[in-house]
Nucleic acid binder design. Structure first.
Lengths: 142, 142
DNA sequence: CCTTGAACCTATAGTTACTACAGGTTCTAT
DNA sequence: ATAGAACCTGTAGTAACTATAGGTTCAAGG
């Protein structure tokens, strides 16, 4: 009884992305090809809205498209278990922590540079930041 | 008296990047066109090594190519002051902090999901992670 | 019913910062 | 002299979209 229909514009707004992004997701097979009107316009159902929300939310959480494909496979196909999804989430959490660590090292380096530099109008030749940038490695690479 | 010469391979190794990356930097104007041998091979000097190190280090610190162009402009042109560089470094530090904050919120969400999910082999239909992913917004976007 | 303009359609190119390849030339060491 | 490593140019590919062009369809107002 819930057969509300959505145009692509409504769908996009509903999930906070652009129409072109929906096209893109369809092209790469993340979103299914929906039915069309006589004239060729796409017509979406609530299930599409949910699926797109899932995708967008997963992207926000830093999952890559390929990972999301895997997650959706879990959901689309029967015979999958919660444990598999949990494992992916844990992997993702670990990757995120590594990114955070990297950035914090980076932040430290930047702040040190800024503190050492009195700024104002001494010449560029005496700038400790420029100096630091000419020096090799100190942070983990990105 | 220090006129050591470097091949592009040596230059790349010296700065920890690939030969193709040097070509690329030359093409986009980050690195100057160096002199060549009779046969057309590039010949670099120590100044090139230093400049490339500067670029690579800045990239490690998260500066975008366009920002590095600005930094190099400060260095290449006279009449610039340390203060300008300092300001850019501070801006960069702020941007990095924002990224860190985002990722930490993300981390929180992921960990919550993992904790709520007992994993094991309950069906995907009861998975709290899948559930959470179907729900809208909770983290800042990336 | 007709018109207007918003929303839609497809297909292609652009974005960022590289990386990878193809097909050919030069350099270096034996 | 020759083998093979390193170099050359130019083009295409990567991720995840975004933007544009040029045309069609839809919904609302007159």
């Amino acid at each position: 009884m819930n057969n509300v229909k959505y145009s692509i514009g409504q769908l996009a707004k509903e999930s906070g992305c652009k129409v072109e992004t929906v096209h893109y997701y369809e092209k790469i097979g993340l979103m299914p090809e929906p039915p069309r009107t006589e004239g060729g316009h796409r017509v979406f159902a609530l299930s599409h809205v949910k699926r797109l929300n899932f995708i967008r939310r997963s992207r926000e959480l830093g999952f890559k498209i390929e990972q999301i494909k895997d997650l959706l496979k879990f959901i689309d196909e029967p015979n999958h278990y919660c444990g598999e999804v949990r494992a992916m989430a844990m992997l993702q959490a670990r990757a995120v922590q590594e990114k955070i660590d990297d950035l914090q090292r980076l932040q430290l380096a930047l702040n040190e540079m800024v503190i050492k530099c009195k700024g104002s109008n001494n010449s560029i030749d005496d700038c400790p930041i420029v100096d630091a940038l000419f020096t090799k490695k100190a942070t983990g690479q990105q």
